[in-house]
């Protein structure tokens, strides 16, 4: 097994600033995304994700210029998501320098968007972001930043999206987001085994052991976290050294 497991810091962006909340609420300012992106790249992040959570379309227009500045500052791949609802949106962000885009609520409203994006730009740059929540013993998809129940089983939606051309799954367990109680291991493994594309686990990272668990028990290909890195609770070099010592292939 030579593939390196990826560690992906996530920057939630609101009105051009990095923010962080708990279970998608109570946002706090975490500073300049370009400086933070450059810092993580230099610290050994394998990729970055930028999620724009700006509420209005008007304010979102500045995203492409932020993406261009991030592209200039880093030499590792990065994914941009948040409010992407048409192939034109995708094109604009890829042209600005993003390597991949992630689709979430818009893909739920219009599943053809997944196929259209994959056909035009290749599956390798289409990440399906899924906000998933445990209810009555099963995991269901939520939309609109985790606020609205869709009634769809997560595994069904993920399978459908992969069949339509999604090249990667970013699976966020809403119940775990910001709690630092660990990733949703069983669910992550279940989804990772259900599809033929890489799965990025997200939501719940609180310590380095959580990352080890999600790569072993959770069968994740990559793990994403935000607050734990932003607040310097865990440093990337320390995390990677720990994983390496624990027998996980990581890029160091």
């Amino acid at each position: 097994m030579t593939l390196a497991k990826r560690i992906i810091p996530c920057l939630d962006i609101k009105d051009g600033k990095t923010v962080k909340g708990v279970q998608f609420e109570g946002l706090r300012d975490m500073g300049d995304p370009v400086a933070l992106a450059a810092y993580y790249a230099e610290q050994g992040a394998d990729e970055l994700v930028l999620l724009d959570i700006t509420a209005t379309h008007e304010k979102r227009k500045t995203l492409a210029s932020l993406v261009a500045r991030v592209a200039l500052a880093i030499d590792i791949p990065f994914t941009v998501g948040g409010g992407i609802s048409s192939p034109d949106d995708v094109r604009r962000l890829l042209e600005a320098g993003a390597d991949k885009i992630s689709l979430n609520s818009a893909a739920l409203r219009d599943p053809d968007l997944v196929g259209a994006a994959a056909l035009a730009f290749g599956s390798q740059c289409v990440v399906l972001a899924v906000d998933t929540k445990m209810e009555a013993g099963d995991w269901y998809v939520y939309s609109n930043g985790g606020r609205e129940a869709t009634g769809r089983l997560t595994r069904d939606w993920v399978r459908e999206a992969v069949a339509r051309g999604a090249g990667e799954i970013l699976l966020t367990a809403i119940n775990r987001d910001g709690t630092r109680s660990g990733f949703a291991l069983d669910h992550t493994r279940h989804i990772a085994e259900a599809v033929t594309v890489p799965v990025i686990a997200s939501g719940g990272a609180g310590n380095k052991e959580h990352f080890l668990e999600v790569f072993t028990e959770g069968a994740a290909d990559a793990a994403l976290a935000a607050g734990i890195f932003h607040e310097k609770i865990l440093a990337l070099p320390e995390l990677k050294q720990y994983l390496k010592t624990s027998g996980i292939a990581v890029r160091t």
Partner: peptide, 10 residues
């Protein structure tokens, strides 16, 4: 194996 390969590899 997952396809596409999206990974850091040796």
């Amino acid at each position: 194996a997952k396809v596409p390969q999206i990974a850091w590899n040796r």
